[in-house]
Design a protein around this nucleic acid. Structure first.
Length: 469
RNA sequence: GUCCCCAUCGUCUAGCCUGGCCUAGGACACCGCCCUUUCACGGCGGCGACGGGGGUUCAAAUCCCCCUGGGGACGCCA
């Protein structure tokens, strides 16, 4: 029988880091075992518009590539089924009506064994009531959690929990169990915050005389202060990471390593490799602190290892966003576009770096950074004129240099530097700033060749004018 | 407060189940050096942890107990 898992987020309106990790582990298992993942929105108590609140979650999952096989289902839409189960439990005496008035100090336990006559009286009097599950006394519930191992719960530590509110809405505990049952869920993989609720759920399965599914609880993801990750900690929505320029594959990779380890020293994995290697056996029990440094490193790793073609759509999006996308790059200029990506990808951490750090590689509309100006474009008085003259000679030589390649551009530059007595460091530095605007850049001749003769000459022209001011 | 869970470098973790191979391995971050007339990548090295106390044992990061610390759940929220 193939496995069926589900991701059942609360409708917070966006997919947060913790939810994404839960979705990922469910998804990895489903993909690995050729099972199915069901998406179910846990909106039992929410009045907000279903369509809107589901959007953020769907967007997040879609961006990450965590595709579900069935759903999204809305828990709120399954009220009829939930009520039917409440009725059944009531009928079988496994649940009872609690007529306690809101705010009264009355003990709900007094309704536990109300006589049928008293009950009818109350009902006739149209008294509103909630329904509570009758938790058996003095029993021990045991289950095996695939992460936490053997777990025991004494029923005496559990209250008769409410399964139907007095407003007629079923509660979460009732709904999850009914839905997981009716949707044929075989493995429940969720956050460890549900570990202590599991006893109640198992009681419900037993009351319904249904087999208990497999459970695997995942350790929680905490902020740097070891508190549960929340808005206070900054970016918690996966879509914020998208905005920041994080690759879905990098976020998935990072999240997979938060609470799970392959048992080897390898850390960088493709999504397919994660599917192949993932195993619940190797999931940790300890809560993990989310580290934004490491995710950036991970992103840099993924960017460096991806081919220019794979990076192409992502870079395009970033450049469009920055308003420096050139349509020619999907036509005649595509090869040039790809080599440019190849040229700088190893020094990029975030996709957005392509548009900031890498701006000059894509448009001539860029500024010299302050650091670059200070370091290379403010020569001493005696260095100034040789530098300017050298740059002029270089520009003129490059105009006709044939061929314009790695060897020739370097040879030409060095010859001029030597002839004019310009320190190569200063000369190359000035050319680097002229062409890239930055202090840091790939090898200068790689830059010149990739930029091409026309742009190189144009930019040398610009820097000469800059220096002459 | 009650109940439950967890505990290795600052952080993510390997090792723990099946004690000895652990003078505890890797990664991020940080600091050096190499490569590069820049920077990044890469390479080399450094800093840095078994929370504390008791047991058990010839031997404990590994097994047991207590303490401490952290987290979670106790709701007519999910």
């Amino acid at each position: 029988m193939s496995i069926r898992v589900r991701f059942a987020p609360s409708p917070t309106g966006h997919l947060h880091i913790g939810g994404a990790r839960t979705a990922l582990f469910n998804w990895l298992l489903a993909r690995q075992k050729s099972g199915s993942m069901i998406l179910r929105i846990e909106d039992t108590d929410m009045e907000r518009s279903s369509q809107e609140m589901v959007e953020g979650i769907v967007d997040g999952l879609t961006w990450l590539g965590l595709h579900w096989d069935e759903g999204p289902f809305f828990q709120s839409a399954r009220r009829r089924q939930h009520l039917a189960v409440v009725d059944r439990l009531l009928q079988e005496g496994k649940a009872y009506r609690d007529f306690t008035k809101e705010g009264s100090s009355e003990d709900y336990r007094s309704f536990r064994d109300l006589s049928p006559v008293e009950r009818e009286e109350r009902l006739d009097g149209k008294k509103s009531f909630a329904v509570r599950f009758r938790v058996p006394e003095g029993k021990r519930i045991e289950f095996h959690d695939q992460v936490y191992g053997r777990v025991e719960v004494e029923t005496d530590t559990l209250e008769d929990f409410v399964i139907l509110r007095s407003d007629g809405k079923p509660t979460y505990h009732l709904s999850v169990v009914v839905d997981d049952l009716e949707m044929g869920i075989t493995h429940i993989i969720r956050g460890a915050d549900h570990l202590s609720n599991t006893g109640k759920h198992i009681l419900l399965y037993q009351a319904l005389e249904e087999p208990v599914p497999n459970y695997a609880h995942l350790p929680l993801i905490l902020g740097p202060d070891k508190k549960r990750l929340s808005k206070r900690h900054g970016a918690t929505s996966v879509l914020e990471y998208r905005r920041q320029g994080i690759l879905p594959s990098a976020l998935l990779n990072y999240l997979a390593l938060l609470g799970w380890s392959p048992g080897t020293d390898r850390e960088v994995f493709s999504v397919q490799e994660l599917i192949d290697k993932f195993s619940l056996d190797r999931v940790n029990k300890t809560n993990a602190v989310f580290d934004s440094h490491k995710i950036q490193w991970m992103n840099g790793q993924h960017i460096s290892r991806m081919s220019a073609e794979e990076l192409e759509p992502f870079v395009r999006e970033v450049l469009e966003e920055a308003g420096i996308w050139n349509p020619d790059w999907e036509a005649a200029g595509r090869q040039h576009f790809l080599s440019t990506i190849e040229l700088i990808k190893s020094r990029v951490y975030l996709l957005t770096d392509f548009a900031t750090f890498g701006r000059a590689y894509f448009t001539e509309d860029f500024e010299y950074t302050e650091a670059a100006r200070k370091r290379y474009l403010e020569p001493s008085e005696e260095e100034r004129s040789p530098l300017v003259e050298g740059l002029q000679e270089l520009r003129d030589a490059y105009r006709t240099l044939e061929p314009f390649d790695l060897g020739s551009t370097e040879e030409c530059l060095r010859a001029i530097a030597e002839r004019k007595g310009i320190k190569p460091g200063l000369f190359i530095g000035a050319v680097r700033v002229a062409t890239t605007g930055q202090v840091k850049a790939p090898g200068i001749f790689d830059v010149l060749v990739t930029l091409g003769r026309e742009q190189t000459v144009k930019r040398l022209d610009r820097v000469i004018r800059f220096l002459q001011q």
